[in-house]
Every structure is written in structure tokens, then in C-alpha cells.
């Protein structure tokens, strides 16, 4: 059986959930093989084996994280050569897509981004135009390189053979052209990452102020959710830009999305419309967001959310 490569996302020894989703997807397409690049600890290798990887290609070293994207492309390319892979799956994150883009140029392969599913023969499904149209595409030249959105498939915990293969990678001077000199973390600690979270609770202009986000955060924490924001809220400086959901922000596809004080403009919908279940709280019964919801409450979020948070805490506890 032919191998299907999965680019591993990991930080500080933790493998991200999307990696296990992609390994599950890879198993339906061939033999799942993980490619772990950078600071790869034994824990990372062990959890990849437990998460379904039959082979684990490892390119370890600090230079992968000291330079932008290109060295990782070299590592992935050498995994392609070593495995004769039938296809490559990467997470459709900003960096994942850039790695895929450069790999496509280098390896002479076609690329499909933002897939929400991949069927046998590497037929990718994409949801476009704010979720109104489903497209099926395939790569016609080279090895299919497909960037798949987090939360597209449910990860199944089937352990793999977990054979480790250390890669011999040539990182060129050109790969080292753009140097990372500093990393600055701004994320509020303790919440799941926006694009990976199973539940996202977000707030918009209706939240009213930076302090108003307190009720949104409280609900998110009661549900173990990530916090998102509309552009109106990030533009006003009420919430940091990196939490913006929508066309010019993050695309999220969680099990549950709760929009609070968000009208549901098309640019916002573009970033959340593929969420499995959608809930909204808005004081305007005519708000377009209600066209999308599975459940909606017409009301003031400053009274509805605290009550909901209290109920959630009580029923969970």
C-alpha cells in the first residue's frame, strides 16, 4: 500500500488535534505516515504512533523554526522522496498552506487548499462562496498536495505501526533567507486555539466595549471554548485582531459556534458558516445571523449570556 504523508503540527511537545484528524483521513486513503519537523521529542513520536501513524519521518533541528517556511518545505520534500508518497495532507492553517504552496512549486505538483473532506483518489471537497457551493476537485499533475481544514473529520484513535525514519535533509542557504529573530506571544493563555476548538463563542459590536467581552469569555470558559470576534469588535480595539473570524480573519469550523451581538454579515459568515451547529444571541429579531442558526435567542446578550453561563456551570458541575 502507498503512503500518504501528513505534516505534523506540534508545539512544545504537544501534537495538535488537527494532526490526528489528518492521520485518520490518511488511513482512508492509504498508509498514514507522519512528517514531524523541528523540535521533535520522543513524546511527539510516541503520540503520533498512538494516533495512527505507521511511519514517522523525523527532521529534527532548530533551524526549521529559526527561518520562515522554506526549510520545512525541504524536509517535507525529502519525506516525499523517501516515501514515494501518493499524496500529502497538510493542515489548512496560514503556515500549512504556505508550506504546501512552496512544496507544490518545488515538486511540480498541483495543490488544493481549504478542503473540508478528501475522498478516495484524493478527490477534495471544498465549501466555497460563504458555504453556498460545494466543489469537488482533484490534482491532475504530480503528487496531490491538499490542505485540509481543522475539524473536517473526527480523529479516530487507531494506533499505527509507528516506525521511525530519520530524514536526511539538505537545508539550503536560500531556505534560510528569512530569519526569525524573536517570537512574541500575545495569546491569552488557557483557552483552546481558535481554529482547532470544538466550540467557539464569539462577540461583535453588540458586546459594546472591551469590558463587555467579559460575558463572552465567561461563557467560553464554562464551555471550554475558544473566543472569537467580529471585525467590528477587533477594529474597535475591543478584542485582539488574531481572534477575528471571517473573510479577512480566521476560518473556523467547530462543532458549535455561538455568535453574540453579531449581525451575520457575509464576510463574517465566510469564516464560520461550515460550523456544525450554530447558535446566536442578538437583540434584533431581523438580524441575518438568525437565518443560519440551529437555535437563536432574541434578547440582550448582557442578560442572556450570564444566565446561560450559570446554567452551563450548574449542569456540568
Amino acid at each position: 500500500m502507498t503512503e500518504v504523508l501528513v505534516l505534523v503540527e506540534h508545539t512544545g511537545g504537544d501534537v495538535k488535534k488537527v494532526t490526528f484528524e489528518l492521520l485518520t483521513l490518511a488511513r482512508s486513503l492509504g498508509e498514514p505516515a507522519a512528517v514531524a519537523i523541528g523540535d521533535v521529542s520522543d513524546d511527539v513520536v510516541a503520540s503520533l504512533a498512538a494516533g495512527g501513524a505507521d511511519t514517522i519521518y523525523v527532521a529534527s533541528g532548530s533551524e526549521y523554526d529559526d527561518h520562515v517556511v522554506a526549510p520545512k518545505v525541504s524536509a517535507l520534500q525529502s519525506a516525499m522522496a523517501a516515501s514515494g508518497a501518493a499524496g500529502v495532507l497538510v493542515p489548512a492553517t496560514a503556515e500549512g498552506k504556505e508550506i504546501a504552496a512552496r512544496l507544490a512549486v518545488r515538486s511540480g505538483s498541483g495543490i488544493i487548499t481549504d478542503a473540508v473532506g478528501v475522498a478516495s483518489g484524493f478527490v477534495a471537497e471544498q465549501s466555497v462562496f460563504g458555504g453556498s457551493t460545494l466543489v469537488h476537485s482533484s490534482v491532475t499533475t504530480g503528487t496531490p498536495i491538499i490542505a485540509v481544514r481543522p475539524n473536517s473529520v473526527a480523529a479516530e484513535a487507531t494506533a499505527g505501526a509507528g516506525r521511525r525514519v530519520d530524514l536526511d535533509v539538505t537545508v539550503t542557504d536560500a531556505d534560510r533567507a528569512a530569519k526569525v529573530t524573536e517570537r512574541v506571544a500575545q495569546e491569552k493563555a488557557g483557552r483552546p486555539e481558535l481554529t482547532e476548538a470544538a466550540i467557539v463563542v464569539s462577540g461583535g459590536r453588540g458586546v459594546g466595549s472591551p469590558d463587555g467581552f467579559g460575558v463572552v469569555e465567561a461563557l467560553a470558559d464554562a464551555l471550554g471554548a475558544a473566543v472569537g470576534a467580529s471585525r467590528a469588535a477587533t477594529d474597535a480595539g475591543w478584542y485582539p485582531h488574531q481572534f477575528q473570524v471571517g473573510q479577512t480573519g480566521k476560518t473556523v469550523s467547530p462543532q458549535l459556534y455561538i455568535a453574540n451581538g453579531i449581525s451575520g454579515a457575509i464576510q463574517h459568515r465566510a469564516g464560520m458558516q461550515t460550523s456544525k451547529t450554530i447558535m446566536a444571541v442578538n437583540k434584533d429579531p431581523e438580524a441575518p445571523i438568525f437565518d443560519l442558526v440551529d437555535f437563536g435567542v432574541v434578547g440582550d446578550l448582557h442578560t442572556v449570556l450570564p444566565q446561560l453561563t450559570e446554567e452551563v456551570t450548574r449542569r456540568k458541575g
Binding site: H136, S138, T141, G296
Partner: peptide
């Protein structure tokens, strides 16, 4: 082009959801 669209279709519209008006019990 190195990739090709094979087919596309309009996604079926989402089934209409339930919308309630808060009368002091919206959160519940």
C-alpha cells in the same frame, strides 16, 4: 492548471432553526 474542478453543486440550505425571544428565561 494542475488541479481541476470536477463538479460543483449548491449546498442544500440549512434547515430553519428555532428562535426564541428572551422573557427572562432565554439563557435557560
Amino acid at each position: 492548471a494542475w488541479s481541476a474542478v470536477q463538479e460543483f453543486a449548491a449546498r442544500p440550505p440549512r434547515a430553519a432553526g428555532t428562535v426564541v425571544t428572551d422573557e427572562g428565561d432565554g439563557g435557560a
